Amino acid sequence: MTISAARLKELQSRSDADIDYSGIPELDDAFFETAELVTPSAKTQITVRVDSEVLEWFRQQGQGYQTRMNAVLKAYMESQRRNSR
């Protein structure tokens, strides 16, 4: 997702008091009792060949497209692990 320079400037000029948090539940003690710290796993740089249309589609999604590609592959891997049990 991209954001225009004008919109970014508008958002940066807002004060914290102007932010509407009404749709976001407050995190209480019960949340933190069951919360788990999830740290990113180490990445290994590789060269992989993908169809041009696949790469272009992910690139059109904007910054972080490689992270999203990894997330798709990881979700597939985890689904296969669950199905093989």
Rank of each mutant, 00 (worst) to 15 (best):
D29V: 03
E26H: 01
R85V: 07
S15V: 00
V48W: 01
V72S: 06
E56I: 09
A71S: 11
S15C: 02
R14W: 05
R81M: 09
G23V: 04
F31C: 09
A42Y: 05
R81P: 00
W57M: 13
R85E: 10
I3G: 00
P40E: 13
L73R: 04
F58I: 09
F32R: 02
G62S: 03
A35G: 06
K9M: 00
Q45E: 12
P25R: 08
L8H: 09
A35T: 10
E33Y: 04
E33L: 09
M1W: 04
T34K: 07
L37V: 14
G62M: 00
M69H: 01
L55A: 09
I19Q: 12
M69F: 07
Q60L: 11
Q66C: 07
T44S: 06
T34N: 06
R68D: 08
Q45M: 12
D18F: 02
A6Y: 05
Y21D: 12
S84Y: 12
T47Y: 07
T2Q: 14
Q61Y: 06
Q60T: 07
T34L: 09
A5H: 05
L11Q: 06
D51S: 15
L37N: 08
L11E: 06
L55W: 01
M77G: 10
K43P: 02
N83L: 12
D29R: 02
S15E: 06
I46Y: 03
E10W: 14
V54N: 08
A71M: 11
G23E: 15
A75D: 04
R59C: 11
S84I: 14
T47A: 11
A30Y: 04
A17Q: 09
R14M: 13
G23R: 13
V50Q: 03
V72Y: 10
M77E: 14
S15K: 03
K9P: 00
L73C: 12
V38T: 13
L8K: 11
V72K: 02
F32K: 01
R68M: 14
I24W: 07
P25Y: 02
A5I: 07
E53S: 15
D28L: 04
A30N: 01
E53C: 13
K43E: 04
K74P: 00
T34I: 12
Q61E: 11
E26S: 04
S79E: 10
L11C: 03
D28S: 07
A75L: 08
N83D: 12
T39W: 04
E78T: 11
S22A: 15
I19E: 14
E26W: 01
E10C: 08
R85S: 03
I3K: 01
D29H: 01
V72N: 00
I24F: 11
V72G: 02
Q66I: 06
S15L: 03
Q80G: 10
Y21W: 10
R49K: 11
Y65G: 03
V54W: 06
